[in-house]
Design a protein around this nucleic acid. Sequence first.
DNA 1: TTTT
DNA 2: TTTT
Lengths: 184, 184, 184, 184
Amino acid sequence: MSRDFNRVILMGRLARDPEVRFTPSKQKVARFTLCTGRQWKNKVTGELQSHTDFITVTAWSFTADLLERYVKKGSQILVEGRISTRDYDDVKTGQHKWVTEVVAENIVLLGSPRRDGDQSGSYQQQNYGGQQPYQHQAQQQSDAMPAPDMGSLRNEGGFDDGFPLDFSELGGGADQSGDVEIPF
Amino acid sequence: MSRDFNRVILMGRLARDPEVRFTPSKQKVARFTLCTGRQWKNKVTGELQSHTDFITVTAWSFTADLLERYVKKGSQILVEGRISTRDYDDVKTGQHKWVTEVVAENIVLLGSPRRDGDQSGSYQQQNYGGQQPYQHQAQQQSDAMPAPDMGSLRNEGGFDDGFPLDFSELGGGADQSGDVEIPF
Amino acid sequence: MSRDFNRVILMGRLARDPEVRFTPSKQKVARFTLCTGRQWKNKVTGELQSHTDFITVTAWSFTADLLERYVKKGSQILVEGRISTRDYDDVKTGQHKWVTEVVAENIVLLGSPRRDGDQSGSYQQQNYGGQQPYQHQAQQQSDAMPAPDMGSLRNEGGFDDGFPLDFSELGGGADQSGDVEIPF
Amino acid sequence: MSRDFNRVILMGRLARDPEVRFTPSKQKVARFTLCTGRQWKNKVTGELQSHTDFITVTAWSFTADLLERYVKKGSQILVEGRISTRDYDDVKTGQHKWVTEVVAENIVLLGSPRRDGDQSGSYQQQNYGGQQPYQHQAQQQSDAMPAPDMGSLRNEGGFDDGFPLDFSELGGGADQSGDVEIPF
DNA sequence: TTTT
DNA sequence: TTTT
């Protein structure tokens, strides 16, 4: 069964702020929907068409911490992970249901959400626990800085300018997503 | 919306024979479930655990033709594609439902199913329309040939020994998966 | 031979402006070096270390047009492609040499280079044939626009806000990278 | 620097047996050339053309152990990794040289080489240190087993039937490829 | 020959 | 220096 391979690479924007929960065994899980757009020309009529895929993504422990801290509705990120499926009995309807989602194993932060109207306001209010993320710096000098991209956050790697170099204060622990009840 | 990216690469085995249908506009679609296994050691107890993901895959036109001809329950394949989501109203239950599946854009055939018991029998019976696929040859000399792998079938590419080099007799037409009702 | 698979996905920044040339048969080729950074903590000393990979990327026809128009030194892009190797005899040294490079089959434009000093100046001078690219707009209103990302440019797809929706005026022609002498 | 991404997925066959060496700091490294074939139809003449890419792959510690034990000339494998570049001064010619290679982070074993003539013989002779690999079992019952594929060997995962479930006796240690002199 |  |  393990001569198999399962790899997903997605780049898009969050449909909403990530939702963070804990499993009974205290594992942190973040969950969000990633929007991925696609355009094509209709072969017959020639008109331009488009579709957005809304992909459910789940992240654990360290990666969940990072999402919770630095990512919100509208953030552009790259997700590397795998497709995961599971089934359960929906107690409300009595139906047996299947869920297909992406488990993020690695995330690269690419850009802040568009700031238009109050979206921007709610953003500034946010408290990042004493650490000024790169993104925040960028805003302060936004007239000079053209690319308010966020740095990259890899589990195994180091980190960019505006970001803390040491994430050891963040919840560690390995991805035990396979061993554990998913609280969504 | 199209500064986005959506790429999936899977390798596994078919849970069942592919199911082939046509859209109202006569587009051929193949659909199947790909089994992808995964193992890991429980970090606490140390015991080996495993899980299989059952991933729904859909393929169009040319790729659907190839699946229909050369792939069956148990076949090992590599799928390159994208994650696609769609929603619909389930007329039976009145519920609004979301579907997440993989659209195959490229397929590599890797191996035949295990032949044990009657599985093998049903295999031999199959008729490949006059062309002897590589896989079939391999069976005839299975005592001598250790690797009854199938060749690779790429939309843009050429093809391996046992396979026909010219697929022009196969149903052509481009992937119009975005323009079309999905008949599943 | 073709039960094989070869896929590369890179995200980084251009070390220099792309260089554009033509093959004897008038195929347009663009070539550039993509910088991809990586950090890790030394397992023994614990100190943070980093390395940059300088990856040669080559693009053909339509993709070469897009690179020539919209991408320059410092631009952040995602490249999807394949690894390609070739050998030749270096007439100067008489040595036989091997080249490993990435052939881009798909490109997503992510961000403009940092504008500091004259870099910005030379940027503004550039003429985009009457069409104002998204990136250019972003500069003009950079105090209001937080995310001067560029749209996505896929061969098969449509395109984003600031970008032209119809690239038919761009040099067409398919990628014939396999049939042709590489003029670098 | 680390808003970057670098991912490679290759499937092909080994051009030769892997070569294993040690760094001055006793890190084990395996190196081999992976052959990846590709076919296409010439757009003008319509004739089928083909090319093989010969890609240098490097693997460390645990993955190097697995390659050393279970993989040889002709073996079919899937490699997941990253592109790595480095430069050095060739003391013999006095030239400055650039090397582009793939660092394998994950490997899936897919198939044994074809056994024809003495190739088969040398294969049987091989000693796997007391452990019977899946592949070996497969040979013994090759008349009944149609798919003598090898199992999957992932750093983080568990393992398939014929393979040992516990690789703890293998040289552990993390990939320190970034910190270390490469002895090739 | 290297980007941020 | 190349595999099937």
